[in-house]
Structure formats: structure tokens, C-alpha cells
Write a protein that binds this DNA or RNA. Sequence first.
DNA 1: GATAGACTAAATGTTGACATTAAAACAATC
DNA 2: GATTGTTTTAATGTCAACATTTAGTCTATC
Lengths: 218, 218
Amino acid sequence: MNARPSETLSSELTSTLRDAIITGEFKQGSKLSETRLAKQLNVSRGPLREAIRRLEGMNLIQHVPQQGVRVVTLTKELILQIYEAREALESKIAALAAEQMSSQEIEELHRLLDVQTRHMREHEAAAMPAEGDYAFHEQVIRGGKNKVIERALLFEIYNLIKMFRYQNEFAHTSTSNALIEHRQITYAIEQRDAVLAEVTMRQHIKRARERIERRMPD
Amino acid sequence: MNARPSETLSSELTSTLRDAIITGEFKQGSKLSETRLAKQLNVSRGPLREAIRRLEGMNLIQHVPQQGVRVVTLTKELILQIYEAREALESKIAALAAEQMSSQEIEELHRLLDVQTRHMREHEAAAMPAEGDYAFHEQVIRGGKNKVIERALLFEIYNLIKMFRYQNEFAHTSTSNALIEHRQITYAIEQRDAVLAEVTMRQHIKRARERIERRMPD
DNA sequence: GATAGACTAAATGTTGACATTAAAACAATC
DNA sequence: GATTGTTTTAATGTCAACATTTAGTCTATC
């Protein structure tokens, strides 16, 4: 009856724990005790351990044999490295998106831009809501039609970025700049100009990284 | 007594299964039965499942809930996507390596080149031994001092590339071209020329991808 | 002969208990 | 009082059994 593969307990745990880490419910650097978590969530340790292994693969937790796991600590150094990786991957996927996206997918990009624009007008000068920003970038990422880069970005980079933004006020996506840059990226993709899309996306991310470099304390 | 964290059964299984997949002992697309593997390796299913979750994070196997896991199938399309991801990440890390590598690390790069050169002379025109090629690239990758990119390359990209090369004769690293290009990359890093290192590395990988594009059947 | 349904078997998902190791608490000595 | 050694406690690592779902087989009916 259910077309998509049914959720398993261990995959539900993965999502639950991922969100708890992103929102800071589990503090950075804190130890995650299996026994305590298992009692707390009312599950056995088997599926819990599997979920933990998956989160390990997402860079959200670090494992030391015989000692347990800890939530990753987002130091300034690590965040800047994350943005370097993001710059390399997402500029490439933007170039691919310019070549690969269907006209329907580009339509959707415009729709997402409209939503952001409307939100801007209504809440003038307010920070862009994170959800709109993510939706735009994910649409570009999926449009590149490269499963390897897509996976690296959505599973290993974006969760960390969401975690960082969620837990640091100064990191919220800022002002109208992002919207302008999103329009430029959309234009480049629409023109099927891979080079322009790549350069524009690279600049977009580079600026975000430089803002962090300036504002984040060590 | 043992300084480094002691190996656990599940981490040993991860390595064992990884190698078995890379070498083609487990065929591409074949199903990995937990019960059979557990008997075969004389371990219980718990640690085995954890190892499988880790290999999932390495892109070596794919999991379908309630159905089990299969070894990844390296189609031409996937291989080309892997090389696109590699190009984006490794060109960036080459730029970083030009800025970050210590002189000792650059020394080691020269040493690795010498080994390759000597091997070339003795086995003239023969294919470069894969090990030498990996050693060179890994040295550059670690030299970039970016843990995020390093992890993505060594854990998610290179295992797939090793698997691809190991199982396809035409994919073996070829001739003296690679050595020449390795020398160019080393030169750029030595000169602390990040842009040149990035461009040279990008070309190096791009050429490899184009060779695959031409030679690999669909 | 083909198709639909019930039944069987084997696999994955999950649980609880056991074993071993690391951390914590305590005691004893310098 | 601090430090070293011992004991205790609790956590991680591992195992074996149970539950549930899926795939296959067989049978019955059209």
C-alpha cells in the first residue's frame, strides 16, 4: 500500500537525533550516552547504535572506540573548512545545473524566488527566513543531476550549516543581498551559462564565508 | 599500553568488507545477506550491521529498508559523476595545499615522485602502480589541512575510484602522463602558487575523466 | 493453462542479556 | 594534603533469541 520504503525505527531515530543535534538540544561537544538515550527514547540500544553510525557518516558526531560518541564542536576553524568544501562542491553543481535543469525545474526556482521576494516586502529588512534559503539551494543542488555531489552537500555539509546557523544568531542569512545573488544565479542558469552560474555561486558562498570570518569569535 | 584506540570488531569488519567490495570479491549489484555473512565470518549480526551502516556512509553499498543491502553498481554515469565531485574537491584542496603544506610535507612529495620515477625507468612504459599514484594524491589531500574535504575525498570518493580501477583493466593509471602532471602539481605547490596548483590538479583529473568517457562502454 | 490466494520459509528489524573495558569513587600511603 | 593504588560502578561492545515483513511456493479456482 505504501509506495515508498516504510520507515524503520532506526531511520526514525536518525532523523530525531539529527534534529536534536541541529537545534542544539544536544549541546556541542557533549557526550551521548547510549544507555541513557535508549531509556529516554524508550528503544533498545541496537537501532540506536545504528542511527549513531549514520550520524557519524553525516559528520554530526564523532566516535572514539571504547569511549562513546560526542556531538561535533563547531569551532571557527571547522566552520570555515565546511564553507570551503561547500564552495568547491556547490559552485560545480551550479555549473551542472545550468546545463542539466529542466525548464520546469527552473520555473520552480522562480517560484521560490517569488516567495522570498514577497517575504522580504512584508517583513522589510528582516533576515531571510532560513527555510526559503535552503529551498532555493536544494533546488539548484538537485538540478545538477549529480548524485555524488548532491549527497555530499545535503548529507554532510548542509546539516552542519543548518546546525551552525540555528545556534548562532549572527549567522542567520542576511538581508536582501542573498536575494539579489539568488536572482543572479537563477539568471545564469536560465541563460544556460555554466561558467557564470559557477562563478556567481562561488562568490555567493565566498561572501558568506568572509562574513563569518569577520564576525565569528575564535 | 596501546596508544591508539583499540580496534573493535565492528571496525575490523568495516575494513574487511570494504576491501572485499573494492577488490570485487563481492560483485557489484549483488545482495549482501546479513545472516550468511555473519555465519561466514563467524560473528554476530550486531557488529556486522554497524559495519554495513558505515559502508553505506562511504557510498559502497545501498540500503533498502526491509530488503537488505546491495553492493553499489559502478555505471559509466556514476563513475563520471564521481570524477566531477573529485575534480571540484581535489582542485580546491590542491590550492589549499599550496598555501598550507609544510616544507617537510613538500619534501615527502618529492620523495614520492622519485619512487614513481624510478619505477617508471625500471618498468618502462608500464602502467604506473596504483599505490604510488594514491600515495601522491593522499599526500596532497592531507597537506590541504581541511578535514572536511579530506574526509569527503578519502572516505567517499577514493574508495569508489579504487574499486573502479581495481576491477577495470582499462582504468589503470596510465603511462608517463600522470607522472609529468604530478611533477607540475608539485612544482605549483612548491612555488606556493595556489591558482596554478588548482588549475593543474583540475586538468589532471579532467583528463582522467575524459579518458574514461572515451574508453568505458555504457 | 493462467491467475489469485493461502501458506511456508527465510530474511531483516528489534529486543534483552552477557562480557569487557573505561571511568569514578574510595582508601591507603607518602 | 596530594597522589597512588584498589575497588566499584556504569558504560560500550557483543551475542543470541524473538518479531515482523518479504519473497517464494504451492494449491485451488476460473
